[in-house]
Design a protein around this nucleic acid. Sequence first.
DNA 1: CGGTCTGTTGATCAGTATCAATGACAGTGG
DNA 2: CCACTGTCATTGATACTGATCAACAGACCG
Lengths: 250, 250
Amino acid sequence: MSNVSSVLHLIEPLKSETQPLRFRARQPLIRRGELPTAVWYIEDGWSARFKLLRDGRRHISRFYAPGDICDLSWLVAGAADQSVMTLTPLRAVRIDRTRLDARLRNDAALGFALAREALAEMRWQAEWLVTIGCKSAAERIAHFLCELYLRLERRGKTRETSCDFPLSQQDIADFTGMTSVHACRTLRELRNSGVIELCRRRLRIVDFSRLVRMAAFDANYLEEPMTAAGAGLAAPGHRTATPECRPAAC
Amino acid sequence: MSNVSSVLHLIEPLKSETQPLRFRARQPLIRRGELPTAVWYIEDGWSARFKLLRDGRRHISRFYAPGDICDLSWLVAGAADQSVMTLTPLRAVRIDRTRLDARLRNDAALGFALAREALAEMRWQAEWLVTIGCKSAAERIAHFLCELYLRLERRGKTRETSCDFPLSQQDIADFTGMTSVHACRTLRELRNSGVIELCRRRLRIVDFSRLVRMAAFDANYLEEPMTAAGAGLAAPGHRTATPECRPAAC
DNA sequence: CGGTCTGTTGATCAGTATCAATGACAGTGG
DNA sequence: CCACTGTCATTGATACTGATCAACAGACCG
């Protein structure tokens, strides 16, 4: 993902065990409140970072797919404030936190790479905040599928136009902020309209450009035209601000 | 904010200008798609990071208050993917990006501090994702007010139990993912129930503990009891998972 | 002053949640 | 091999949160 010196490359010598560890599905990798002693480089399988509220509501704030590191935020001191559990059987390499932490204090290249990685993650989260914050159920799910597919494609984890998709509708719902019932209906619409196929834990993107349009998604973040100044054109309606910050709707 | 060597301390020698710069209210600090040439240490005033969708929907993903750096994510290469505009008149110190970037490659302490800062920001965003993703309008606004007050308190920007609050209801709405009309009604409920006072750009927390309860907020992240294992107790209803990840509702 | 923005309230509507029931399927143990 | 169990996807009926539309008053500003 990074260009010159990725975190993955730099932490290579820190892998504690020669053999990656294996976890069964639906096992906790960490529980909220625990102190992480390591981060995991995920070679295979999926997991989810989530939080439970007292009344049972659950929200998933992040999925980890093969190639992800789970979780960089554990490198700041203190207890994990969200839990992580595997969704499928998982194979992951353990990277000892103490050793990584110690090296970070001396190795500028590693610190730089880690900062870059963290900042990139921040950008992704900021984008997803916007999606959760103001898009419809259909847009949220379409956006999620676009993004997921592109992420897996960059890692060579897609075949033709399809990829593994081990998530239940409950998982999708908890990630996109809706109920599983509504996720079900929304997915059905997407399938009925012919933009995706989804069965037996496999997702196939039939019409990517249409999915992108349905998502109000832009891989290069093209949503906002940002014409030269956008000035001089006021937007109508309640959601209006001063001209220089509110280009006209289109 | 950090303990030993904060970013703020480390970037001290990088401040490009002796005098901080001033901006008027409602001016763009950056527009989406532009290449940032500096980050800003905000001494006084407020601003917002946001994104506009084609149809005019706006979502604010972050407010910057005095003491914040706007924005760390600009240190990764490439164009800004969200815009930032001032909400009030602003006084900020310019920190040249090229110089910061150059120093980052050699200075392990700076890289470490920056990484810590970025990771802390990630954690905040992940928490806010949960809030936006699964809480009610009243909970979201209450949560926001709790958090804002605590953040300002840490920086000594509160007096008694009150603080400046220059945000319009439209700003609050765009941040918490609702309409300004609904934000208005929700704020009114909070005022009517006597937990806050809010007038003439000043917020007063009358009953903090009740506000916390209304927010399902926990400053120390206490929402999830995370009893020893949480195991053996299945939760009812649609939003159910395996026992080890789903402690009973309460 | 006259325009613009903000806060406010009321009436109505749409999107999504909730509740309930069912069928398909996988895993388990007798 | 088959009943038993639990999970998951699905559908229908209904309820409710929050959006939308409309109108107006006060504050602020040129």
